[in-house]
Amino acid sequence: MPDSGAGRLVLLILAAVFAFLYVPIAVLVGLSFNASGLPTAWTGFSTRWYAALLQNGEILGAARNTLIVAAASTAIATLLGTALAVGVELRRRRSRGIEALIFAPMIIPDIVLAIALLSFFSLLRIPMGLHTIVMAHVVFNLAFVCAVVRARLKSFDWSIVEASSDLGASLVTTWVRVVLPVIAPAIVAGALLAFTLSVDEFIIAFFTAGAGRASITLPMQVYAMIRFGVTPEINALATLVMGASLVALALAQRLNRRTLGA
């Protein structure tokens, strides 16, 4: 498109949308380095809120819980989701029921899954805690891992597998040597996606957490901080969390350019 009126309009739209998306984030990042910690006045550059953050036992505990939940749910979901993806693609016939079941966790409103699991655990008298959050997170994580891996498998030529076994390779060898290398980047991308989703997930965790600090995750801690009155540490926390998400996403993007849509 030449640099016409339309071209300028396009640039204007881009500028407006990116300003809308990034000004709030920039504000938080900026504030995190403000010595006073208040949005009302800039009193100089300081990393004191980061230091305070690292000494805040509650936040660190919540961060630890979040990492446990994300790591555990990602591990389980990656295993189950990858197997599911391969299984579905391996099948000769598509089953609408199975497709719907796999699609459902991605579209079901969080609040519905959250209350369903709360009622389920509560009526079955299953004590709630980090383990129940993990169980819940696996539900949507495995669906996302499955979707990413399937996208990669779509272009996979199954005759290679048959050729390999025709040539006398064992089933295990075939999988490890032939299939796995093809889908490995998708598995890692899926795992990173799952990890990011789990780290940020709030609603389901909020409903399926148990009593006590032992099952408070970082998003729950942030919610509590916002509701009970905010300390400036939250800006530093926000900056760190966003930085971490950026790294994870950039990594996933590199690994699996196509399947994530960009």
């Binding site: 990116f18 709030p24 504000v27 949005p39 940020d200 942030v222 905010v230 969390v241 960009a262």
Partner: peptide
């Protein structure tokens, strides 16, 4: 596109909190 989608992956509560500050 990456830049446009990036905020979507940062913590939802933190992004909401940013609006309180604003």
């Amino acid at each position: 596109l990456f830049l446009a989608v990036l905020p979507f992956w940062s913590n939802y509560l933190i992004r909401t909190y940013a609006w309180i500050v604003l």
